[in-house]
């Protein structure tokens, strides 16, 4: 494996994508929505004290979640106004799984274009008769999905955190809601492992489908477990705490290894070439 070659593959794909706004647009827009619209909801809640009664009602919806939170946090919430509880739960817990959608979506959009798309456009064939190895191609192209996916994930996290903190600063008397340990593990531990998983699956899917549209559509399946997490948390079944997240990272790493092992088997020049039209 020659690092220079991996870099060259990455650079080429990246330049190509940069000149293709259709690919970049969705992976920029959705994170912006998450990073700005979700905090806007929180701001809305926090700025309507008259609705304290309704907050009380909404808090009831989160009771199963609250009941399963660690003792110290429950104690802290017990001291708060319903309004504050509502904001806290939403900003810190409820919205967290949304940030798992960003790396999955970004990396599968980029990956579908880079793997299935290039197979469809046949540009990948032009690179096979060069000194590039299959492994270098796979790694270089995976990075084209991974690096931008991580970049948008981190940026949207910073934007989200900043808006939340600024908006809730006075409400919580200077306590910063974000970052906390859970969010840090989530963003810097879970999302990279998740992005890799999604890239590996995209590689495998791309080998089996005709074009990148199909690959993208199938990749949507990856979002189901995330929705599962969201509901599991609301229903109190599973709280995204440090231990759960650590376990999740461990699981994802194992899945990543398995998927990339499979991906390497699928991503071979003879397979890439197969031209059954």
């Amino acid at each position: 494996m020659n690092r220079r070659n991996v870099w060259l593959v990455f650079k080429k794909d990246w330049l190509e994508i940069k000149r293709n706004p259709q690919v970049l647009l969705p992976i920029v827009i959705v994170p912006i929505i998450f990073a700005v619209v979700l905090p806007a909801i929180v701001v809305l809640i926090s700025s309507t004290p008259a609705a304290a009664g309704s907050s009380q009602n909404s808090v009831e919806g989160f009771l199963p979640l609250i009941a399963n939170l660690p003792q110290d946090i429950q104690a802290m919430l017990a001291q708060m106004e319903p309004n504050q509880v509502m904001v806290y739960i939403m900003a810190v817990y409820f919205f967290a799984p949304f940030f798992l959608i960003i790396p999955i979506m970004a990396s599968s959009v980029m990956g579908s274009d880079s793997f299935a798309g290039e197979k469809e456009r046949k540009t990948i064939e032009a690179l096979l008769a060069t000194p590039l190895t299959d492994g270098e191609l796979l790694l270089g192209k995976s990075l084209v999905s991974f690096i931008p996916a991580m970049a948008v994930t981190f940026v949207s996290f910073f934007v989200y955190g900043a808006i939340i903190d600024v908006a809730t600063y006075s409400m919580f008397n200077g306590m910063l809601l974000i970052p906390n340990a859970v969010w840090l593990i989530l963003i810097f531990g879970v999302t990279p492992a998740l992005a890799l998983c999604s890239i590996g699956l995209t590689v495998i899917i791309s080998a089996r489908v005709k074009g990148f549209k199909e690959a993208q559509q199938i990749s949507v399946v990856l979002l189901l477990p995330i929705l599962g997490l969201l509901f599991a948390q609301v229903s109190g079944l599973l709280i995204l705490g440090p231990v759960v997240l650590a376990a999740l990272i461990g699981l994802l790493v194992l899945v990543d290894i398995a998927i990339f092992y499979l991906g390497m088997k699928v991503f071979q020049r003879e397979e890439i070439l197969s031209r059954q039209s």
């Binding site: 190509e16 293709n20 046949k122 064939e125 096979l128």
Partner: peptide, 15 residues
């Protein structure tokens, strides 16, 4: 050591 043009050669569109 060899040069190759694949059948229906195409290259990256924006290059």
């Amino acid at each position: 050591k060899i040069g190759v043009i694949p059948q229906e050669f195409t290259f990256f569109e924006k290059t």
